[in-house]
Design a protein around this nucleic acid. Structure first.
Length: 278
DNA sequence: ACCGGAGCCTGTTAGC
DNA sequence: TGCTAACAGGCTCCGG
């Protein structure tokens, strides 16, 4: 569920917490979490490395190390990173022992421990020299200036899949997930069931603007906190308070009062106003 | 090239 | 009240 605004919030929070700190050791408890390289090699390679840079591509966090390699973290649905103070991070500590959902631990030179937890075990971590091997196929960043309506128009041209499914497709656009897809389509007043290729230029311009507005509003509110997501500082995001349609099936549209429709598109629950969105 | 569906996971919720 | 089944949704893989 962490999407672009949540991951951006995460990276901004991690930067001051981790900059300049060194990984003494890493422990992998659920090897499948490490997508690349093999877990034993992963722990070898990160040992003694210092956090040097912080970035994001789509829903991927890019944590640059002083070796030149990049630690890439994808939280998928329920992943989280927590930095624990020395007093509470002692592995034998009764204060705050790692639970069964803690899959990777990084002991830092400050005595702190960075824990990767993930209830659903979908989250993944890579250590690569070339980030393109992981994020190279992603579509454009929706908040960068290079992303213009024409970019979107090219990706949608001739596509028969519904626009909702295409917005979730990370090769069309990087970083949009179920929440921000539904909210953007509502703001753009476009029916999520429409074939991507059926949108005219004016609708694509509306959608382009809506995507940027909704994603920026998400970042300004530090993301959306539903069941599982909270930034590493522990403070919760607030964008869930601003939802117009997401998880509002059956409730009245804030714009026209019609009950919000809930259906499934692209294997995802989809929420829209049948009157406002055409 | 494109599209839709299965599978990966487990805690929470809905329904009998 | 207690059990089971559906649901949540990020992504990859596979068949058509």
């Amino acid at each position: 569920m962490p999407e672009l605004p949540e991951v951006e919030t995460y990276v901004r929070a991690l930067e001051p917490l981790l900059t300049g700190k060194t990984i003494l050791t890493a422990e992998v408890r659920w090897p499948r979490t490490i997508a690349f390289p093999e877990a034993a090699r992963f722990t070898d390679l990160v040992r003694g490395r210092r956090f040097a840079s912080f970035g994001r591509r789509g829903k991927y966090m890019l944590l640059g190390l002083d070796s030149g390699e990049t630690l890439i973290v994808h939280l998928r649905m329920t992943g989280e990173l927590r930095l624990l103070a020395p007093a509470e991070s002692d592995s034998g500590s009764a204060v705050n022992p790692p639970d069964k959902h803690t899959h990777v631990l990084f002991a830092l030179d400050t005595g702190e421990v960075l824990r990767f937890r993930d209830m659903r075990k979908f989250g993944r971590i890579w250590l690569v020299e070339d980030t393109a091997s992981v994020v190279g196929k992603l579509g454009p960043e929706p908040l960068e200036e290079a992303f213009v309506p024409q970019t979107l128009a090219k990706s949608l041209a001739g596509r028969k899949a519904n626009i909702k499914a295409l917005l979730l497709n990370q090769t069309v656009l990087a970083g949009v997930g179920n929440i921000y897809a539904d909210e953007s389509l509502f703001l753009a007043r476009i029916d999520p069931r429409r074939a991507g290729g059926s949108l005219n230029l004016e609708e694509i311009e509306r959608l382009h603007l809506a995507l940027r507005e909704v994603l920026n509003a998400g970042i300004e509110n530090q993301g959306s906190s539903l069941q599982n997501y909270a930034p590493p500082t522990g403070a919760k995001g607030g964008f869930q308070e601003k939802f117009q349609v997401f998880r509002r099936g059956g409730e009245p549209c804030f714009c026209c009062g019609a009950p919000i429709n809930r259906t499934v598109l692209g294997q995802r629950s989809t929420h829209f106003c049948p009157d406002c969105q055409k």
